[in-house]
Amino acid sequence: MTEHTTERTAPASLELEAISKVYGVTRAIDEINAQVPAGEVTVIVGPSGAGKTTLLRIISGLDTPTTGRVLFDGSPIKGVPDGLAMVFQDYSRSLFPWMRVEDNVAFPLRRGVEKAERRRRVLEALQAVGLEGKERLYPWQMSGGMQQRVAIARALACHPRLLVMDEPYASVDAQTRAELEDLLLEIQTRLNVTVLVVTHDIDESVYLADNIIVMSKAPSTVQEVIRVGLARPRDQIATKEEPEFVHARAHVLRLLRGEAEPEAATPDDTLEVGV
């Protein structure tokens, strides 16, 4: 049972042991072994249809693997682990249009957190994502980027030890995307939480990650795990000019392109794969 404790606890680690998933006769995930170290940002990147979403559902306990297991802080998960919070890709569906922003953020806290504390946490979470004063609005009165901030605030208000994000910025424009990337890194450092992000954007994966898990097409395996040593805080312009960033981006792209059809990989789409 989650007792949403007021005290922040240590970030959680995650281990994937020989995970596979078979739907009927289709093998979506072949075998995945990977580590998500505590207190770091790990990014899973792979082409469309690489079973990223399936893998994420297994990690978050929404689905069970055909074989293998997920260890959350060393113990195998049964259902959604306590201390895990999630930000979904589609904010228009994951937020509730009939609730104001404050009610959306407070919604997961209704059990086990008393009213005054709930209120405090909602304001704190909204402040963390830069939405002070917006608590009385409805989500549909806000821009897409602001709605996704609300979704992040909702996850933060739970004081998670592991924050899972499924293509969180796929539905917002480029400018907002950059802002939200910086916001995520800033929050991660300040709150000391483990973050796992799934994306198909290679730039984003390198910019955010301490570790990148590069997946292959279905049936998916892990092609390589790349350690990114870029200094924090990162900067949208300066960091992206560093040789290590350029090198890592090229390396990830080569890994992904090795799997792609030769004619699909024109020189023009060097930045995104499998949109």
Binding site: L62, A85, R93, M99, R111
Partner: peptide
């Protein structure tokens, strides 16, 4: 929809709240 069902599962929303605050308003 499944997106909202996933939100309910991930955030461990109690059944009563799922019924009164997600299902009923969503179907209204």
């Amino acid at each position: 929809g499944t997106a909202r069902a996933h939100v309910a599962s991930v955030f461990k929303i109690p059944s009563r709240d799922v019924l009164l605050r997600i299902v009923l308003p969503g179907a209204a």
